[in-house]
């Protein structure tokens, strides 16, 4: 009886002070999550008529639009993004080449990052695809993260009232995050 009681008490005491061993909690410093997030960005569908001003009967060589992208300079993600991969998918049915520029700006409109490409001309009745991939990392990434908006400029070398077709853009960004 005494022995049994002794054994039992010993077991209980061990349970109270049971040990945690073969563990290394310093590994917490090595924990790293690396999600890769795909998000739509901007899109447009520009008609050829946008490049000719019928009231003044003159070409409008550059059309331009701006949108805020306020999440870029958000404190929630700044510093966690390791790389951004932009994919711009142009489908051009206008028989002209285009220059497209993306200018990232701060709130005070000072430029932080520029990129752009030339879009292949469409042909009569056929749409030509131009894929433009821009990978941003390192110092350029810091530039992007200071921006809060992007200005998109589409420039046509020549235009007239008879020009037809559309220029479409679909785009996405892949954010490579570490935290």
């Amino acid at each position: 009886m005494k022995l049994l009681t002794y054994v039992f008490f010993s077991a209980i005491i061990v349970s109270l002070f049971g040990c945690v061993k073969d563990t290394d909690f310093d590994q917490v410093d090595d924990i790293l999550f690396t999600p890769e997030i795909e998000l739509d960005l901007i899109y447009f569908n520009l008609d050829a008529g946008e490049f000719f001003d019928t009231t003044t009967n003159t070409p409008r060589f550059t059309v331009r639009d701006t949108t805020a992208l306020e999440f870029l300079d958000s404190n929630d993600i700044t510093g966690s993004i390791q790389k951004i991969e932009f994919l711009f998918d142009f489908n051009n049915a206008i028989p002209r080449t285009f220059e497209v520029d993306f200018e990232f700006l701060r709130n005070n409109n000072s430029a932080t990052y520029n990129t752009g490409t030339v879009i292949a001309a469409g042909t009569d009745g056929a749409t030509i695809q131009t894929l433009f991939i821009d990978e941003v990392e390192g110092e350029e990434l810091n530039d992007i993260e200071r921006a809060s908006k992007v200005v998109v400029s589409v420039t046509i070398p020549e235009a007239d009232a008879a020009l037809t077709g559309t220029l479409e853009l679909q785009s996405k960004a892949t954010y490579y995050i570490e935290y």
């Binding site: 739509d40 901007i42 899109y43 520009l46 946008e50 639009d65 949108t67 805020a68 908006k149 996405k172």
Partner: peptide, 19 residues
């Protein structure tokens, strides 16, 4: 995503608040 419609705006005018 955000659709840009390239409104005809004059220099200094604000574009649409898409975001």
């Amino acid at each position: 995503g955000i659709e840009l419609i390239f409104p005809p705006i004059e220099e200094g005018e604000f574009t649409l608040p898409y975001y």
